[in-house]
Design a binder for these strands. Structure first.
Lengths: 214, 214
DNA sequence: ACAATACGAAACGGTCCCGTATCGGAAATC
DNA sequence: GATTTCCGATACGGGACCGTTTCGTATTGT
């Protein structure tokens, strides 16, 4: 009655173990998996909203039958979750020399990702959808945000410990001071420029302060 | 044939002047105007996306016939433009004593507006939609963003002139340094807190710098 | 060869929406 | 009171999409 593979979304970490009945017949096409996810990202990149994406349109763009999509995911929401996992870039390696340089690396990471239309379009959509689909937001938070925030938090704590950063500022606020300028510029201002060297400017300005005479 | 009022959206600054044929018959209900716009804002506040709003649903939520909506606006896009104009709050009055205090006022304005679910939901939606509907983004930019940015820019220029702010930082970057932390926290982090006094903390930290010993 | 499963394509009945039109009643001017 | 226009409600034909099912075909293990 129930097909074990029909409930197994790609990338959910449930490969058919030896205890499960061994796969028979024609196996799922891995190309179809990637074509579908790729199609979603392309459509979002072209400016579509998640709400505007229909399963039919996704299948069409992927050059795939609708049934092939439904065979893999229960619905659009489940598909979106895997789409987000697919953009889960790993956080950058930090040199670890100075706190200042590591902060620049973190801010630069945001800038570079914003230059990838694909990522920023996805983020914008998830944010707009967040209130409606808490699961979607939770997934994005867990896969994309949490890791980076933890990394930045570590750098900041190190800075406070080594005496490079003031200890009298809430660590969370500290993170927003460094990341907020680049985040707001890249996400909230579609028309803003993101020139090379901007990350250094931001970090140094926040460190030094913008008051004249500092 | 063509009804002059049928092409006259509310709030488009085209009242029936004396040169136009005087109005006859039953006048448009102002209550319907506000009910429709109010309905859109309520639906967005409840988490809906602009793309998920249908004219039918809007009319239903407003307690209004569908024809009444179409009598006023040519389509959803035209309606959204007027919705945005309706949230066009005026920029705050600046005390003008110190640049620091005026900057706090500007940042606090962002915080207060973020606390109004109605406004933040609308902004999130417009941002997600920006790439798809450049007209929508342009309207939002003109009615909401431009005025505030001009005001902040003026304060910053004053600060540079009076010697309160460093003159060697790009003015636009300067604005992002002050506004970015509050903007990113309020728009990109649905779960973040916006406690009272946060604006002062941000402005003072950016002014003074977060480097230990400043 | 045969059974099992996946594939793309197409069709299904159903729901929602579009934008327009029509209705009887209400509210204003003439 | 007659005329004009708006009102909410409802109906219309047309279209998109939903999620499922059924094709004929392709690809695997037994």
């Amino acid at each position: 009655m129930t097909d074990i593979r029909a409930e197994t979304a790609p990338g959910d970490g449930t490969p058919p173990g030896p205890s499960v009945r061994v796969a028979r017949g024609r196996p799922r096409s891995a190309a179809a998996d990637t074509a579908i996810i790729e199609a979603v990202l392309s459509l979002l990149e072209e400016g579509a909203t998640i709400a505007e994406l229909s399963m039919e349109r996704i299948a069409r763009a992927a050059g795939v039958g609708k049934a092939t999509v439904y065979r893999r995911w229960a619905g659009k929401n489940a598909l979106m979750l895997d789409v987000m996992k697919s953009v889960d870039e790993q956080t950058p390696r930090l040199a670890g020399r100075s706190v200042r340089d590591d902060l620049v690396t973190c801010v630069e990471f945001i800038r570079r990702r914003a230059l990838v239309k694909r990522s920023s379009a996805l983020l914008r959509n998830v944010i707009a959808q967040a209130q409606n689909e808490p699961e979607l937001w939770a997934a994005y938070h867990d896969t994309v945000i949490a890791a980076r925030r933890a990394q930045v938090g570590e750098v900041l704590r190190r800075g406070v410990r080594t005496g490079e950063l003031r200890a009298d500022i809430d660590p969370e606020l500290l993170g927003d001071l460094f990341l907020g300028p680049m985040l707001s510029r890249s996400m909230l201002r579609p028309d803003a420029a993101l020139p090379e060297g901007l990350s250094e400017l931001i970090v140094d300005a926040v460190l030094q302060g913008v008051r004249a005479g500092n």
